[in-house]
Design a binder for these strands. Structure first.
Lengths: 232, 232
DNA sequence: CCAAAAGTGTTTGATTTACACCCATGG
DNA sequence: CCATGGGTGTAAATCAAACACTTTTGG
């Protein structure tokens, strides 16, 4: 409808990434330091322009790979929301499609093309002072963290923060970091191992972490849980 | 980052609307018949181009008013997702920001500017044959219905389908239509009236619907519920 | 043997579900 | 007075939270 009104105004379209991981028991987000105006020297979420023939999820995966060296297969990427206030970028009209990425705690971002300037930071101070991030990225970050918190409750997504094989205690640490609460290890264990399709046992045990050997699991086939796996 | 690569490719940006209501006990969606190529004569979701200095929520509210005569205040409007496959519109590169609208069962769309060609249709047949809708609107509709179903579970949103004052039975009919299930009237009544902040009693009673007079309520102050108000 | 972490059993209280039953109106 | 839907009471089943207790390793 209405596409012949006066032609169609031109927009620039970008993707911005909220890449979350857990390090040192804290929820962290990938940020870059801006090298150009506006907001030179300020922190920002990684992102970039969508190419003329590129799909949106493809653009998000490409930016993630460029900034971190993380392949799409290693991570979970989903669309978060789209931000298009006319004044959000002083240079021109930019509509940004934000993606939420959950990645395991990998060694520091590979010093590749753009990855040099990118690093992980704890989200808490950034949520308290949203203006430390360029553009409306403080808002985008807050929305991303809220989405992650909400999704842990009724999906099997927490495992996206764990690489390959993980123990129940490691999975519990994910919930505790994202929600900022303490969970009873015994009830947690019963809950997650008792939910069909959530975890796939490998039969292997590990003693990393000390104490009695713990079973290693991988992500189960189920992604959506009803009722919620755990309550926030 | 990267905005000086080769300049920035131009995109057209539109908003598309998934406007849901409940009529005759069924979940219905607002559709229009396309008057121009491509997809002439086919059904499509209402929508249109975002104006050069217009915010995205403003554009969605404007389109809703143009197509239905429904004011933003009468309805609930939230961003759904953004669709930008390079081939989704054969004419040019279009990125569409979809909005989900929940509106009460009002008399037929006012025959105003664009509203003439718009009407409500049951979602079920459209979900079964997504190709009956132009572009990727079948996908957008499916995403919108899924969002609505999920949101009823943990939010006070169901009341957005009811105009002004409503009875508990009318609210229950909303859940039954959206989820396609039957709910026990007695337990439902206890649950919704027992949840603080969900419903505001008016003290007024009505006998529309027959039988013993029912209390009328308006939407309460709480929008987010934890734990879920009801399970799907 | 001791510390540390994994994992199981059990008790208690809250929540859900099913359904019997009473209330207030129109016809 | 009876049909219709509104609303309350209550018992059984299910689920969540708290915590005592056993298991299996490393030192």
């Amino acid at each position: 409808m209405k596409q012949t009104e006066t032609g169609h105004p031109p927009f620039a379209v970008t993707v911005d990434l909220v890449v979350l991981t857990i390090r040192g028991g804290r929820l962290q987000v990938l940020v870059v330091e801006r090298g150009e105006e506006p907001y030179v020297g300020q922190l920002a979420l990684p992102g970039g322009f969508v190419r003329p023939n590129e799909d949106l999820p493809t653009a998000a995966a490409r930016e993630l790979a460029e900034e971190t060296g993380i392949a799409e297969s290693t991570s979970h990427l989903e669309q978060l929301a789209t931000y298009g206030r006319p004044d959000r970028d002083p240079r021109m009209r930019v509509v940004s499609v934000a993606y939420l990425g959950l990645v395991p705690d990998l060694p520091d971002p590979v010093a590749g093309t753009d990855a040099a300037a990118s690093r992980f930071m704890s989200v808490d101070p950034l949520l308290k002072r949203p203006r430390r991030l360029a553009f409306d990225h403080g808002t985008i970050l807050a929305d991303g963290v809220e989405r992650a918190r909400a999704k842990l409750e009724y999906s099997a997504l927490a495992a996206a923060f764990c690489a390959g094989q993980f123990t129940v205690a490691e999975l519990r640490a994910v919930y505790e970091a994202v929600w900022g609460v303490e969970l009873d290890p015994r009830n947690f264990h019963r809950k997650v191992t008792g939910t069909p399709g959530f975890l796939t046992p490998t039969g292997i045990t590990t003693t990393r972490g000390g104490g009695r050997p713990a079973q290693l699991f991988t992500r189960g086939p189920t992604s959506q849980l009803n009722p919620p796996i755990l309550r926030g």
